[in-house]
């Protein structure tokens, strides 16, 4: 009972974190599912978004500009990976890893050589995050503001992406992820399509990092580690719940739901006394389990079929012997 009560108490935080991290998962969805590229840049972009905001807000920037600047830098990171992959023909995974690696140094530069920067909430160094400003404007508590912001952003992003991928340009990006030969034959530049997709995706990831750092009130050079796996976990959880046959709009929304459920799962295991140090391991196991279930189910089905088939002949042989 006590556990249930503390879960309920933690639910609003899990939901708002889920929504904000969901923006990152949407970025992963665009590259991994729509473009069929495993974009490892994400780990670097997420941390960069957080570091940019932490560093600039702490030094007195308006948090709105900081966040916009973080988005732009994220898009630039996507552009770099896109050029490495399409123009310099570096395999997509390696191109992403290279950008991610270089962003680590960039993040340290942004943080002025420190490994993290805080945005203090009290005292004379108090700075205001975007969420502080919104809370003041709406007259709501921090918790409520986080949830409202998350919901509004999620709805806007789902609608916006649904619109974009329905346009002439967006259709061609989707087609590029499905069949490049067809896109080329129909006069589409597949390189440009991939670059656009990577730019948009990393813009979202950076925005997500920027908001997460404003919620936790610090940016850390290591905050991006494993981001892509968390993104994949969210997508997979969404697919398990909503299936893969539903409309594009629902699939986009399912990524946010998946992200929220992921956060709820994390909150529950932490409340159960799980060591937070092992969270990344847990996430990886979760993704491995989700990805391997259909394969294992296939093996079992196949073995059953073989056994049933063989049994039929064994019976025939015994009959003949008798």
């Amino acid at each position: 009972m006590e556990l249930l009560a503390s879960i309920l108490k933690n639910l609003p935080d899990a939901v708002s974190l889920g929504l904000v991290w969901g923006i990152m998962a949407i970025g992963v969805y665009i590259t991994f599912k729509v473009l069929d590229i495993a974009d490892m840049t994400v780990d670097g972009t997420f941390a960069m978004g957080g570091c940019i905001v932490a560093s600039t807000v702490a030094s007195g920037w308006n948090p709105i500009f900081s966040t916009l600047f973080a988005i732009l830098c994220g898009m630039a990171a996507g552009l770099v990976t896109g050029i490495l992959h399409t123009k310099l023909k570096i395999p997509a995974i390696l191109a992403g890893i290279l950008t991610m690696l270089s962003l680590y140094s960039v993040d340290l530069m942004i943080l002025g050589g420190k490994s993290n920067i805080g945005m203090s909430q009290f005292g004379e160094n108090r700075v205001y995050t975007i969420l502080d400003k919104l809370a003041a404007a709406l007259g709501t508590t921090a918790k409520t503001t986080n949830i409202i912001t998350g919901i509004v952003l999620a709805v806007v992003i789902v609608m916006g992406l649904y619109w974009f991928f329905g346009t002439e340009q967006g259709c061609l990006i989707r087609a590029t992820g499905i069949n490049e030969a067809m896109v080329k034959a129909q006069g589409g530049n597949t390189d440009t399509m991939k670059i656009i997709g990577l730019i948009i995706a990393n813009g979202f990831v950076s925005l997500s990092g920027a908001l997460v750092s404003q919620i936790q009130r610090y940016g850390d050079v290591g905050m991006g580690t494993g981001t892509i796996v968390i993104g994949l976990a969210s997508i997979i959880i969404g697919e398990v719940i909503f299936g893969t046959k539903c409309s594009f709009k629902v699939r986009l929304a399912s990524v946010f739901f998946g992200s929220i459920i992921y956060r709820v799962i994390i909150a529950i295991v932490l409340l159960l006394g799980f060591n937070p140090n092992n969270l990344k391991l847990l996430t990886a196991v979760l993704v491995i389990a989700a990805l391997s279930v259909p394969v294992i189910r296939g093996y079992i089905f196949e073995r059953k079929r073989i056994r049933a088939n063989m049994k039929k002949y064994e019976e025939v042989e015994t009959d003949a012997g008798a």
């Binding site: 259709c171 989707r174 087609a175 499905i178 069949n179 030969a181 067809m182 896109v183 034959a185």
Partner: peptide, 8 residues
């Protein structure tokens, strides 16, 4: 398979 995008 090559001339069309199957998932569209």
């Amino acid at each position: 398979m090559k001339g069309t995008a199957g998932d569209m």
